[in-house]
Amino acid sequence: MEQLIQELKEHLIEELNLEEITPEDIDAEAPLFGEGLGLDSIDALEIILILEKYYGVKLANSAEAKPVFYSVKTLAEYISANRK
């Protein structure tokens, strides 16, 4: 799980162009949207692509997006449970 969290942080930095942020700066349990990294709805679309592109994971329904997208840790847990 730790390795997956580290990898996810690297993908987020790369794909979302997070300037001057290193994986160490990202708290895996902090909220991704609003506070924390302050991501927005366009970033949510980019994260959906990260899940599909790197892990083959598709979000089954939009209702589960909010808890899954809460933090890096919740994303990693969802990937672990659903990756093929």
Partner: peptide
């Protein structure tokens, strides 16, 4: 590259 799937929104916008 992604065969018209998984297109990132930012470069499009």
């Amino acid at each position: 590259v992604d065969k018209e799937q998984l297109l990132n929104p930012t470069p499009f916008i």
